[in-house]
Amino acid sequence: MARLTNDNVELAREIMSLYPRPKSALISLLHLAQEQDGHLTDSAMAHIGELVGVSSAEVLGTASFYEMFKMEPVGRYMVNICTNISCQLVGGEELLAHAESTLGIRPGQTTPDGLFTLEDVECIAACTEAPCLQVNYRYEHRISNEGFDQLVNDLRTGNRSDIPDHGVLAQIRQHIPEDRRAGSVTPEDTAVPAWISAPEEAEK
């Protein structure tokens, strides 16, 4: 299974350079690995450990804490249906039940064609737009049973090119131009910031 590709290693180095300590980039790099492979492979995790300078066990310890990281392959589309309180009150659980029957799987399972993984998730911050769901973390607000079936159909027939494969989060990344960069501040940089010291000196 895959370590990070050379391009991704380069990107990983750029990401690490944004932080005072390389380990702070760990979660970002795990996202990068998941974007590459759709889930987190052992070798990608080990590779990330090498890059940020921690043991593989520490990488796994961090990765496994977070819901979004999958250690096993999942469907191309992760369908996350919210059943938390605001959605529950207006039909989230019924929507989930409908999704189960449409997709023929229970939460946590993947359709045999490898297209969909269904999850019963906690609040996704769209409470006023309930019931709601996410496909690969792209929102569908106030969705009805029919709307759901349409969505599944569109995904099956490739009509939702706006939704990338599982693992791809933001497709635009931050890039700090070298000439604009203030530079990472490490805990060892104990100098008083320029704009703070100047007025203080002026006062004196």
Binding site: Y66, M68, N80, I124, Y137, V168, A170, Q171, I172
Partner: peptide
């Protein structure tokens, strides 16, 4: 993490 649009 679950907010790619906000991230973008």
């Amino acid at each position: 993490g679950e907010m790619p649009l906000a991230q973008e």
